[in-house]
Amino acid sequence: MSNNDKDCLDNLRMDMSTFARSCYLLHNIGGLSDSKYDRLEENVCFFLSVLAHHKKNVTVKFDHVRSRHTVRIYFNVVLVSLLKLVPILTVTPKPVEDICTVARWKHFKDNTTCVAMVT
């Protein structure tokens, strides 16, 4: 992989700083680590290639010179690690309160099934 933001954005849909931070979180909180043959960053690249470009395992295996089985295994390992970050990266929505004065939420005040992110 190249060492510039444009290539990183084109291939992974995130800049190098965001990729490094994602790998840091996946390692320290998600428990993802280097394997015997592959680095953590390469495994995250497998994962992001599939998501960012709707690639199949056979395409990723060709791009990274790995077996389909290896790509599948590491995709699942990164996915499990990423799911451990859900409580940290997601925000729980709060219902719109009756005292809310923001105009764009006025239509949702009486509807208890609608929720919004009110800040």
Results as ranks from 00 to 15, higher is better:
residue 77 V to C: 13
residue 8 C to Q: 15
residue 6 K to V: 14
residue 43 N to Y: 02
residue 82 L to K: 00
residue 25 L to P: 05
residue 96 V to F: 05
residue 53 H to Q: 05
residue 12 L to K: 11
residue 5 D to S: 13
residue 110 D to E: 11
residue 95 P to V: 15
residue 8 C to H: 15
residue 71 V to L: 10
residue 103 A to Y: 12
residue 94 K to S: 12
residue 16 M to T: 08
residue 43 N to P: 10
residue 39 R to Y: 10
residue 82 L to W: 08
residue 65 V to F: 07
residue 62 F to Y: 06
residue 93 P to W: 11
residue 65 V to S: 14
residue 50 V to F: 01
residue 49 S to D: 09
residue 104 R to H: 09
residue 86 V to N: 03
residue 115 V to F: 12
residue 76 N to D: 15
residue 64 H to N: 05
residue 85 L to F: 04
residue 104 R to W: 10
residue 80 V to A: 07
residue 89 L to V: 00
residue 103 A to L: 13
residue 19 F to S: 00
residue 47 F to R: 06
residue 5 D to M: 09
residue 77 V to E: 10
residue 107 H to T: 08
residue 9 L to W: 07
residue 112 T to Q: 12
residue 103 A to Q: 14
residue 24 Y to W: 05
residue 37 Y to I: 03
residue 56 K to R: 14
residue 54 H to D: 07
residue 94 K to A: 07
residue 30 G to D: 01
residue 65 V to G: 06
residue 45 C to D: 02
residue 57 N to W: 02
residue 110 D to I: 09
residue 35 S to I: 02
residue 118 V to R: 08
residue 53 H to K: 11
residue 40 L to H: 02
residue 7 D to P: 00
residue 51 L to E: 08
residue 94 K to W: 04
residue 84 K to A: 03
residue 70 T to H: 00
residue 38 D to W: 10
residue 14 M to L: 15
residue 32 L to H: 01
residue 108 F to W: 13
residue 107 H to R: 12
residue 65 V to N: 15
residue 60 V to I: 06
residue 46 F to N: 04
residue 97 E to F: 06
residue 93 P to Y: 10
residue 66 R to I: 13
residue 107 H to W: 08
residue 85 L to W: 01
residue 52 A to N: 11
residue 64 H to A: 01
residue 76 N to F: 05
residue 116 A to L: 05
residue 110 D to F: 05
residue 55 K to S: 15
residue 66 R to Y: 13
residue 117 M to A: 14
residue 103 A to N: 10
residue 9 L to M: 06
